[in-house]
């Protein structure tokens, strides 16, 4: 048995192909991308070594800071929306619907499997104002709230919230299932005991459910934050970063820098900033979660 499991040739044959593809598509390009941050130019115009100049440019680039502010603001708003709505849904599944909630859970989960581009194209029509009102403006018109009719995607203030709303609509069912899985793990006698003690609803939630739910909640927060920091498809298909550059996240700014302004070096620098941001957020939440468990 021992010899059988230590067959080195089998390791190479079985692991080799996967490791090869992984190295070629992810590992080498990651290191390569780090190298690009020291250059400017592109494969068409050639590269020039510029040292740390890209990082200096980054520090003083207003468009970069605007994109960072949008990415972070959008990630925070979407995460609160997705996980918050998910938590409310999960509580509703457990306390209102009980074990018979499979159908509702499934329906509410569905949007996350749909392609983002398709959903965003649909939402562009939902919130359209021309050539005819989309469903939202037409609905406002029908109930006499004409004052609220507006170019939802044409103004910076509302476009931001439409993107957030769409991503909450897409993902809340996903987080609801994750949090639901955490809730049903809580032993029934714990809940019953809390009820007999006369714990009121909010107290019950804060003192009994929340401590049990904390690990799952942190996982959900990490998923949501990292996922929304990487937002690209939704924005590209819904607003293309506009109006102006009002809804341009880091991902889209990186894309435009590289492929429209043909600066791979600076594009890689922005990509690196994004990767560092995702890593810092993940590690910070992990540490926070662990400190919480230790306490």
């Amino acid at each position: 048995m021992a010899a059988f499991l230590r067959d080195r040739r089998a390791v190479v044959l079985l692991l080799g192909p996967a490791l090869l593809v992984y190295t070629a598509v992810l590992l080498i390009p990651i290191i390569w991308s780090l190298g690009y941050t020291l250059f400017e130019g592109s494969i068409l115009g050639g590269f020039r070594y510029v040292g740390l100049q890209n990082f200096e440019t980054l520090a003083g680039d207003r468009r970069f800071w605007d994109a960072l502010r949008f990415s972070v603001g959008y990630a925070v708003a979407s995460t609160i929306g997705q996980v918050g709505a998910g938590l409310l849904l999960a509580l509703a599944y457990v306390f209102w619907l009980g074990r018979s909630s499979t159908l509702v859970r499934t329906v509410v989960f569905a949007p996350i499997v749909l392609p983002t581009v398709a959903v965003a194209t649909l939402f562009a029509k939902l919130f359209a104002i021309a050539p005819q009102y989309g469903l939202v403006n037409a609905g406002l018109d029908a109930v006499g709230l004409d004052g609220l009719i507006q170019p939802w995607l044409g103004q910076a203030s509302t476009a931001f919230w439409v993107i957030v709303l769409m991503d909450v609509w897409r993902a809340m069912g996903f987080y609801a299932v994750i949090l639901f899985a955490g809730l049903v793990e809580i032993p029934a006698d714990v809940l019953d005991a809390a009820r007999i003690d006369g714990a009121r609803r909010f107290t019950l939630f804060r003192r009994v459910l929340l401590p049990f739910l904390r690990p799952v909640l942190f996982t959900a927060l990490i998923f949501a934050l990292v996922g929304t920091l990487k937002v690209f498809d939704s924005v590209v298909a819904l607003t293309r970063g506009g109006p102006g550059s009002a809804t341009t996240p880091l991902t889209l700014y990186m894309y435009d820098t590289a492929f429209n302004f043909l600066d791979y070096g600076y594009g890689s620098t922005i990509a690196m900033a994004l990767a560092v941001l995702c890593l810092v957020v993940t590690l910070a939440l992990f540490r926070f979660a662990r400190a919480d468990v230790d306490r």
Binding site: V25, L26, S33, T251, G267, L274
Partner: peptide, 9 residues
């Protein structure tokens, strides 16, 4: 790893 990280290479 964000996709943007490996796009250009």
């Amino acid at each position: 790893v964000p996709g943007q990280m490996v796009l250009l290479p």
